[in-house]
Design a protein around this nucleic acid. Structure first.
Lengths: 223, 223
DNA sequence: CACTTAGATTAAGTCAATATTAAGAATATA
DNA sequence: TATATTCTTAATATTGACTTAATCTAAGTG
């Protein structure tokens, strides 16, 4: 993992740097927003750790600028205070996670790994399950390279199932996905959609867990 | 992300519901402790948002009950006051995070993501006994890696037995698990379910203690 | 030992959950 | 507006689970 640390306090920076080095994490350290801009242009990083209080401005400015550049680099923000204003401002600017100083270095490490995990999931807009590939942006499914077209409802349901593999999704939860909050208890439209999805992907593509709901079938079923 | 909101004030609930819907978060709303108990039995959620002041009691009662059930569902508590007593009581009951009303909805969102991240790092809830693994969330039993499917009643009974190893459970206690409070003395349905469980896990998986009840068999039996 | 009773075993009947189908209503598209 | 697609409804079919009830077995008891 390659980490960019944007932090003007050398004592903190050294502590982080040493600790992460022991964990086998490569770190580059810059002390200012301008430094961050320069190094970002030259190198690829997995994650940035960003202190907000920097000599040439507030770190959030850089973050805002970064997001304007369409740069999705995961950013972990270090804030001195735990106020709502700070957090809200950070969220708006596009921060992915927070850590309030002072913090435990092991906590920092955990957050880094967690961010990396999330980023890996997000890196691609294609969800895969067995031989099934589903392009989230284009709403297009492929099974063995063969294109399968989906209606809006099928699209929503398949996406939800793929995003929650292994997990049982109740009828209510799935209706929630289709209709938002609703209150019709009687409609069986959901069952019809599931039936239609099974026609397209095979009868075992979606499992029924009686009394509980539905679950995406094992990857081997998609072939 | 699937969120359960336990809140009797419809104005607050609607505000939260609308805001989270815009963030692509599916939310189910119940207005009472009993409603929460029912929906929890049927669906899995990532997080619960719990108001403490509910028509049928204090939300903390539900939280206490939930933790007694070995349910590790992350719970974010909404409190009206910011007193230390409240926080201590909540912590003791097993709350994972707090928000004091009135709160900023973006702050709520940040907390939800933060809780989800924490929960992802947690291990899943699996009961083991010998070579038997039982996944409470997925209602999935495995014996030597071989998957064994269970009906609703079998599921309830096995879960109860696994949660009370060594302990003799009376016929009444087990019927209580299946039916809640009931008064039919004559039905032998329970015996049939036990018989069926023995067929699936071996005749010694459940011991009969004549005149007293049943007990989970020793771990060595599950192989 | 033979009687009683708790529990085990089986099979049949009933019921509720989910699947399937087809037609009509709604919505999107040309 | 015409046409095609998707969604919902509703009727019917199927599946599997639950209960019942009859019979069987074995443990205690006098």
């Amino acid at each position: 993992m390659f980490v960019l640390l944007v932090e003007d306090d050398d004592i903190i920076a050294d502590a982080i740097s040493t600790f992460l080095a022991n964990e086998g994490i490569a770190l580059e350290h810059v002390r200012s927003i301008s430094g961050a801009k320069n190094i970002i242009a030259a190198s690829q990083f997995d994650i940035a750790i960003l202190d907000l209080n920097l000599p040439d401005g507030n770190g959030l400015n850089w973050l805002t600028w970064l997001r304007k550049q369409q740069n999705a680099l995961p950013v972990l923000v270090l804030t001195a205070s735990n106020t709502i204003d700070d957090k809200v401002a950070g969220l708006k600017s596009g921060a992915d996670d927070y850590l309030v100083k002072p913090f435990d270095l092991r906590e920092l490490l955990a957050r880094l790994y967690s961010l990396q995990r999330r980023a890996n999931d997000r890196l691609t807009n294609i969800l895969s399950h067995g031989q099934l590939n589903y392009d989230l942006e284009q709403h297009k499914a492929q099974l063995n390279g063969e294109h399968i077209s989906l209606s809006r409802s099928e699209d929503l349901l398949l996406k939800t199932l793929l995003n929650n593999p292994q997990r049982i999704l109740s009828e209510n939860q799935l209706k929630n996905v289709l209709y938002g909050t609703y209150d019709d208890v009687s409609s069986n439209a959901l069952n019809v959609h599931i039936f239609n999805l099974r026609k397209k992907f095979g009868s075992k593509a979606i499992e029924t867990i009686r009394n509980f709901g539905f679950r995406l079938g094992p990857a081997e079923q998609f072939k």
